[in-house]
Design a protein around this nucleic acid. Structure first.
Lengths: 173, 173
DNA sequence: TCGTCCATGTAACGCGTTACATGATTTG
DNA sequence: CAAATCATGTAACGCGTTACATGGACGA
């Protein structure tokens, strides 16, 4: 029952929303990691419907609005995606996926689950920082320029870690 | 003559290196944004050779090592990719591409070009931060959780900006 | 000779991109 | 009625992923 990020986001958003609604949403948000192109969104919605995670009703008329809703199975799939453990692979290669997941977790499962998720992320970020610092210390031969870039990588994870800690603290008040 | 990131990186790395060498390189680096899978690397090298940006000589014997080198056209293509203006689209959606590009620019075109590139990035990051802050100020309706996530997005760009400024200063000494 | 490493590839598949097509409804 | 906007889709293409195939070299 595995989902990619776009599918999970669509499941989350699809509550009486149409593909066009979602395109407008994606176009309006400046954090736009997601493409608002029809060739991305409509096929993805169709795939989710084929897997019976979404259901839709077309309004009568020619090409009229088609609104989607989650099915029970869709709800379960979203839920299980949101509860997937924070794995090192995602932390290392797609950390922005975790940032999106936080929004979905906190909105869909509640602030408590959001705080737990942030704690798990903080833990994973600390581990990642330690790993990168160990690599930097152990491989001086990679050269000054690569060391600089690695420094940025580490700084970005520190920013993420600080944000987790801050946000968990503020959200828990 | 446009290249994707992987192709540009392969052009950069391909100096008497084989696909296998590159796989080992990708496996060894913990910043691993790039997959070391043969299904990614060998076809990409073959495409570059088909476009005559790389040339290769197979060593005699069965499946023996095949080492690649840049052609003149390959050199030119890499050069022009490295000198492509920093566009807002890349800044917003694939900032890590810029971080890789810095390493390639500074290594391949020299420290001076690297410093110029950092300056362009810093400029773009400042603009991006302003844009995100304006959005945050103008759209309180997006909700507390999204505001938190947006805050992280802004903080990450600030980290990138600080890094550009610091690195340009240190590199210029 | 058996396993392991070196080394290169291919096939099926999923999915995003760009560009195009279609048709209804609203607005000037 | 012409143009823009609402709204949904499809086709071709590029490219990465996973998994599998091939075959030589070398040590136990």
């Amino acid at each position: 029952m595995d989902l990619n990020v776009l599918s999970a986001l669509l499941l989350f958003l699809a509550n009486d929303r149409s593909g066009y609604d979602i395109r407008l949403l994606f176009k309006a948000t400046p954090l736009g990691v997601f493409s608002d192109s029809p060739g991305a969104i409509y096929p993805a919605l169709a795939r989710l419907e084929a897997r019976q995670l979404l259901a839709s009703k077309a309004e009568p008329g020619g090409r009229r609005r088609r609104a989607y809703v989650r099915t029970g199975a869709g709800e379960a799939a979203l839920d299980s995606w949101l509860r997937t453990p924070v794995d090192p692979e995602t932390v290392a290669r797609r950390p922005h996926e975790l940032e999106l997941r936080y929004v979905l977790v906190a909105t869909h499962l509640g602030r408590g689950a959001g705080a737990d998720f942030l704690a798990a992320c903080a833990e994973a970020y600390r581990a990642r920082i330690a790993e990168l610092e160990a690599f930097r210390a152990g491989h001086p031969e990679i050269g000054a320029i690569s060391i600089e870039a690695l420094g940025l990588g580490i700084a970005l994870f520190r920013t993420r870690l600080d944000w987790c800690v801050d946000t968990a603290r503020k959200g828990g008040e």
